[in-house]
């Protein structure tokens, strides 16, 4: 599963060019742009998750916590002190990291693993959501709107979704590069080893606790910065950004994409998030939430019948296509 996981360079460049051209096709269709950007956002989140979940095998369900922290940092700084989201994103990422370490240190210290890690990280999201609902100075039950600007790079506010698409695409590339780098470094090997067996990794000299914290920090930073963009794109912040369903969905994308495969989560995001949005657009009209029923069935089927992940499947199809083309 994990070896041979890099795609050919030519294909990567072709895909990137294709992605860069996509908004030109969509033109002023804002719905399509939001959809594409959302797919990219999930791609970023799931790719970041791949570091802690896919490589290190820690089933983290707290993506919403870090996303929310990033969003609230950017939003609050912009609304209160007119500080540019570009700076806010970095700060938001760092706050997410700080929080992740604060939570992660005792969890890893006491050897909380597997299920209990998954559950306590998912509890974290809900704790933050409720805390921000109650904390009226920063959160509260009402949406807090970011100042409106027709086109301001400083404020990261635009009347069209086009720029957000490109920013998110840039973040996705960043997340993929980080992922790829980690995967082929000492940290990556250590994470894979401890994800398989912590005791065995320890006796081979792996400081499992420190490695897990590093993975957690990288993941939280990427998700936190993405959260900052998320706030600017939607133009408001709300405690519901600390979303449990989003957190589980990110993990699911990472799992069905193919654990530890660099490009797996992106493939899963493209396939599944667009499927979900397609279902929502076509089934949502008459029957609210019917699309979710269908979507969850699709999820279960993929998890049951493609347990190695979509990536291996796509990769196989690509290889077959290539060999057929060569034959002709």
């Amino acid at each position: 599963m994990r070896s041979g996981n890099s795609l050919p360079r030519s294909l990567l460049i072709a895909l990137l060019v294709l992605a860069a051209l996509l908004p030109l096709v969509a033109r002023s269709n804002q719905y399509a742009l939001v959809l594409f950007t959302t797919v990219l956002l999930y791609g970023v989140l799931a790719t970041a998750w791949n570091i802690i979940g896919g490589l290190a095998g820690q089933l983290d369900l707290a993506a919403g916590a870090y996303l929310g922290l990033g969003a609230f940092t950017v939003g609050t700084l912009l609304i209160r002190w007119n500080i540019s989201p570009w700076l806010g994103m970095i700060l938001g990422g760092l706050i997410a990291v700080g929080f992740a370490l604060l939570i992660g240190y005792p969890l890893f210290r006491f050897g909380i693993r597997e299920v209990w890690y998954a559950l306590s990280s998912s509890a974290l999201v809900e704790v933050l959501r409720v805390a921000f609902l109650i904390w009226n100075q920063v959160g509260g039950p009402m949406e807090r709107y970011l100042p409106y600007h027709e086109w301001s790079l400083y404020h990261l506010r635009f009347a069209t979704y086009m720029p957000f698409y490109y920013i998110m695409l840039g973040m996705l590339v960043l997340a993929l590069v980080v992922n790829h780098r980690v995967r082929h470094s000492r940290l990556g090997y250590y994470l894979m080893a401890l994800g398989e067996n912590e005791d065995a990794a320890e006796v081979l000299g792996v400081n499992t606790q420190a490695c897990k914290l590093q993975a957690l920090a990288l993941y939280a930073f990427l998700v936190g910065t993405a959260g900052g963009v998320y706030a600017c794109m939607y133009g408001f912040i709300h405690p519901n950004f600390f979303s449990g369903p989003l957190s589980t969905e990110v993990a699911i994308l990472g799992i069905v994409g193919g654990m530890g495969i660099t490009y797996g989560p992106v493939m899963a995001a493209i396939l599944l998030v667009s499927t979900r949005e397609f279902l929502r657009a076509n089934l949502g009209g008459q029957l609210e939430s019917f699309y979710l029923v269908v979507y969850s069935v699709v999820l279960i089927l993929i998890a049951l019948f493609r347990p190695q992940g979509i990536a291996t499947f796509v990769r196989g199809a690509y290889d077959r296509l290539l060999s057929r083309m060569v034959k002709e």
Partner: peptide
């Protein structure tokens, strides 16, 4: 206690 999904080469690299 094998690193099941890793290759032999990768396991030794750890």
């Amino acid at each position: 206690r094998a690193f099941a999904s890793m290759t032999i080469e990768e396991a030794i690299r750890v």
